[in-house]
Design a protein around this nucleic acid. Sequence first.
DNA 1: ACGAGTTTGTCGATCCGACCAACAATCAAG
DNA 2: CTTGATTGTTGGTCGGATCGACAAACTCGT
Lengths: 409, 409
Amino acid sequence: MPSSQRGTNQEAVRRHNLGTVLRHVHRTGEISRAQLTTAMGLNRSTIADLVGELAELRLTEHAEPGGGGTAARRTAGRPSAGVRVADEGPYVIAVDLGVDRAVVARVGLGGRAFERAEAAITHETEAWQVGASVAALIRHVVSWAPAEAPLLGIGISVPGLVRRSDGLVRQAPNLGWTDVSFGSIVQAALDLDVPVRLGNDADLGALAEHNRGAGLGVDDLIFISGNVGVGAGIISGGARLEGAVGYAGEVGHLNFDPRGPACHCGSQGCWETAVGAHVIAEALRSPGDQVHRLGEILDEVTTAPRELRPIATDIGRGLAAVVNAYNPSVVILGGYFRPMYRLLRAEVNAGLAERAMAPAFESVRLSLPGLGTDSVLLGAAENAFEPVFADPVASLATAVTDARSRLAG
Amino acid sequence: MPSSQRGTNQEAVRRHNLGTVLRHVHRTGEISRAQLTTAMGLNRSTIADLVGELAELRLTEHAEPGGGGTAARRTAGRPSAGVRVADEGPYVIAVDLGVDRAVVARVGLGGRAFERAEAAITHETEAWQVGASVAALIRHVVSWAPAEAPLLGIGISVPGLVRRSDGLVRQAPNLGWTDVSFGSIVQAALDLDVPVRLGNDADLGALAEHNRGAGLGVDDLIFISGNVGVGAGIISGGARLEGAVGYAGEVGHLNFDPRGPACHCGSQGCWETAVGAHVIAEALRSPGDQVHRLGEILDEVTTAPRELRPIATDIGRGLAAVVNAYNPSVVILGGYFRPMYRLLRAEVNAGLAERAMAPAFESVRLSLPGLGTDSVLLGAAENAFEPVFADPVASLATAVTDARSRLAG
DNA sequence: ACGAGTTTGTCGATCCGACCAACAATCAAG
DNA sequence: CTTGATTGTTGGTCGGATCGACAAACTCGT
């Protein structure tokens, strides 16, 4: 039964409002109390009370009315005091597990990415080995954190199917993983009982672009991740579309041509077999071991190679299915689709126009990621922050306050 | 911005809780206060208060602890008094606009369908003519209603694209409509200022099956409507998936075979061109004008004709795309897909297994509608009831209390 | 420079709704 | 018939949002 079947008690109201104020502060970095009252529709007094509680929790702190520097003069009346994320405030660790490397970053409340580190991983590496390198990267990154700052959790992005209920990695073909409990592996390697949240790379990319990127204020958007495999992260009506088990958005395996080549998923002629990284690498006559780096290779290309044109058209044609199925207002092309769209915008659009239904086509817009190549990494961070917006007090209770010293040992 | 950006004030809490109690009563017909406390997680006293307010609004009434008849003896302790929908309680009018006929029914709070009426419509009929016949059916059906009972609204199902923001029918190929404001037409024909809510047939079928049919308690389900055209209504995470403008779920125009025949949507090889009513009717060598009645024709068939087998397989193959895209736990086959699945279950399942991704396939189950051929009609009623669950007081304010006498004139 | 007008923060009082505790009602089981 | 269990009712309590009044801090016009 969904939440609509349950009642709302006053404790839940407080939790929700407190979390929502924090969400606004997180989204903007700094926001005035006046803006909070209009955005949330609550009374001035109520906002003041909530802001006071957040300050007591050391999540936010008072900001002088002047704002950051000599901001432009505003309207008449008393200037509104600001609320900003606390110095030495809480942070999370974001992990982007790619097919050839792992990137780890420390991200503060407010969305600022501080230190980052990365390491290469190969297709042959076992999951526990990957866990060990990730743990080492985390130790390194946390060592730069303020001593007092609490670690709220770890968010991990995985290029594969992640079961929502427990974060189990069901299938990650490009890592060679099946049923790997990667969250537990990292926890064990760190010897730290900190909340870990895993997510599919496309889902997390969509989350980040929705909160901070090209999808700001857009409640129906799709992030397409091209990362050897092809997947979609879907935000519909402002909420993540997950499906029963968390596998919604596997558009790479939508049917594209029933007479097409066999796909590793068991079917044949999947969209992925027409626009996957292998196909593009082959068209570029790129060495086989460079497939994992396709995005970087394409990023250095300035003029579109002729042989990529039909593939770009097929990208558009496949996007038509996405548009017909989900009716988004923005589709953001991430991973190696980003340079493909940058180079071959006309072909992609033509393929889309050819097959999308007119009313759905009219209301959609293709877009490049607003966060560049960091969408997925920042999405992992956003995902790790989610609990603190749902219930700040409970989330702080599970946070690790002395992460730096405990991980240094 | 979604609701998560706004705050919750106490007035909203009361509205929500009052509506939720009413939703429970509606769903079950009769429910004990004890069940309400456990289901909603609120205190006994609070439930008693809410129930009292609903009774004052004449929406519900007290039911003796004995329940409906000599129910089985229950647990120890004082028996819990029941709450049931009021006699002479509020009702809605549901309209199912099919391709060859319109069905109208009066549906009471609690979901009971009382009187119904229908009339034939032809492809050539203009929208205002359809509106006039629907209005006549409504007048007829309302004439049987209790004099005191308030009419909450009218729910209309349309086989086509309906814009969510204002209920405009953008495209209804099988009715020959483009940009028709059918809600206003019916309002004008009735000369009654009553709330009218339109919806796509598949979306409404999904709603009804979720609330009262084969999808009871299932939060991720899909209703496939085969009604000359092919569409899907999607419930994901307990909420309707609508998309930016309301066109999500147009799976009939997902790509099926790029070399397939041209589709009326402008593309070619859409799934609809492989499993649409015309294809099946042709395979049955049925007269061309019988296409609209395909569901009824198939309902009378007892053994599956051999020539339908490949089509059934293609139904399954197309469903694989639906399963990959939305990861539902139940897919309900409505319209003419209902007899197709009844007759050719094995073929449909085989086609699905052939192309769906393994993890998604494992978590999905195909099903016949729990409401028979009435899913869409009852979904239109459920849709019309929605406002009263969002805010009972406001909805009653817009209701028509003397509908019978005003429509009799 | 100074007052008028405007907007915001703060404080106490108030209101509203959910919660709690005690008690009465009503049943099953022994 | 007694005991135990469960539920409805009632009056009081508590938490949280709101309201009104006032002070604070700014812009703008003179």
